[in-house]
């Protein structure tokens, strides 16, 4: 079982000290279809919990990626610019979007663990 936590908007975050890596869930990439473009924030930008941090596009849809917690962007996954298909191929690994320095660790408490997220998905169907 990983330490990955999920939001209701289908983003995940994985913490390493105060740095959180953020991506979209396998369910989200499946819903979106083949990803053709990813728009990433600039490094240093402050992102706010549940507000837009990045944009991900398929041929027929565009979705915002919301940051599950607030923080400052310290790294972005540049490889997605050339190879957005990574989001489909490995959403929880090579397909990560951004790393942020988390402002307030208590914001993590409202997120779901793997098990809770799977239950959440089951309810959606």
């Amino acid at each position: 079982m990983s330490d990955r936590l999920y939001s209701k908007d289908h983003e995940w975050i994985e913490m390493d000290a105060d740095i959180g890596t953020i991506g979209v869930s396998d369910h989200a990439q499946e819903q979106l279809g083949d990803v053709v473009f990813v728009e990433l924030p600039e490094i240093g930008r402050a992102v706010v919990q549940n507000e837009e941090a990045a944009v991900v596009e398929s041929v027929k849809a565009a979705s915002e990626v919301y940051s599950p917690v607030s923080g400052e962007v310290v790294e972005v996954n540049e490889t997605l610019t050339d190879d957005p298909a990574q989001v489909n191929a490995d959403p929880h690994g090579e397909g990560w979007f951004i790393r942020i320095r988390v402002d307030d660790m208590s914001q993590l408490e409202g997120l779901m663990n793997e098990e809770a997220y799977q239950e959440f998905l089951a309810e959606l169907d």
Partner: peptide
């Protein structure tokens, strides 16, 4: 036609 490849 492959619209995905065209957009990438």
């Amino acid at each position: 036609l492959d619209e995905t490849a065209a957009a990438r």
